[in-house]
Simulated assay, not measured.
Amino acid sequence: MMIRIRVGFCVKNLAKGTEQVRQQLLKDPDIDVVEYGCTSYCGICRLYHKAIVNGKPITADTPEQLLDNINDYIDNELMDQL
Score class of each variant (00 low, 15 high):
Gly37Thr: 11
Met1Val: 04
Phe9Arg: 02
Ile52Tyr: 01
Thr18Asp: 08
Pro57His: 08
Thr18Gln: 07
Arg22Glu: 05
Asp68Ala: 11
His49Val: 09
Ala60Lys: 00
Glu77Ser: 06
Met79Gln: 09
Leu66Gln: 01
Cys45Met: 07
Lys27Thr: 13
Thr39Asn: 14
Asp61Lys: 07
Ile58Pro: 02
Asn54Asp: 02
Gly55Leu: 02
Asp28Lys: 15
Gln81Glu: 15
Lys50Ser: 06
Pro63Ser: 02
Gly17Ala: 06
Asp68Ser: 10
Gln65Ser: 02
Ile58Ala: 11
Ile70Trp: 03
Val21Ser: 13
Cys10Trp: 03
Val21Gly: 11
Asn76Met: 05
Gly43Lys: 14
Gly17Gln: 09
Lys16Asp: 08
Lys50Gly: 02
Val53Leu: 02
Cys38Ile: 09
Cys42His: 13
Asn76Arg: 04
Pro29Phe: 10
Ala51Leu: 04
Leu25Ile: 08
Gln65Ile: 01
Tyr41Val: 06
Leu67Asp: 01
Pro29Arg: 15
Tyr41Phe: 15
Thr18Pro: 12
Asp30Leu: 12
Leu14Glu: 07
Gly8Val: 01
Glu35Val: 14
Val34Ser: 07
Leu78Lys: 05
Pro29Gln: 05
Tyr48Cys: 05
Thr18Ile: 10
Glu64Phe: 01
Gly8Gln: 08
Tyr36Trp: 08
Pro63Glu: 01
Cys38Gly: 09
Gln23Ser: 15
Leu67Asn: 00
Asp68Arg: 12
Val7Arg: 00
Met2Ala: 15
Thr18Glu: 08
Leu67Trp: 00
Asp28Gly: 11
Glu64Lys: 09
Gln24Leu: 08
Lys56Ser: 04
Ser40Asp: 13
Lys16Thr: 09
Ile3Cys: 04
Ile58Asn: 00
Glu35Tyr: 14
Asp80Phe: 05
Tyr48Thr: 05
Pro63Tyr: 00
Glu77Tyr: 12
Ile31Met: 07
Arg6Ile: 11
Gly37Arg: 15
Asn71Phe: 01
Ala15Glu: 15
Arg6Phe: 04
Gln81Tyr: 07
Ile3Pro: 03
Asp61Leu: 03
Lys27Gly: 01
Gln24Ser: 11
Gly37Cys: 06
Ala60Glu: 00
Arg46Phe: 13
Gln81Asp: 02
Thr62Glu: 01
Ile58Thr: 02
Cys42Ser: 14
Ile58Ser: 02
Thr39Arg: 08
Asp32Ile: 12
Glu77Leu: 07
Arg6Lys: 13
Met79Cys: 02
Gln23Ile: 14
Tyr36His: 13
Gln23Tyr: 14
Glu35Ala: 12
Arg6Pro: 00
Leu82Tyr: 12
Arg22Pro: 06
Cys45Asn: 07
Arg22His: 11
Val11Ala: 05
Ala15Asn: 12
Ala51Arg: 00
Glu77Met: 13
Ala51Met: 10
Ile52His: 00
Val33Trp: 05
Cys38Asp: 07
Asn69Thr: 03
Ile44Trp: 08
Leu47Gly: 10
Pro63Gln: 03
Pro29Trp: 08
Glu35Leu: 15
Asp32Met: 13
Asp80Asn: 13
Gln81Val: 14
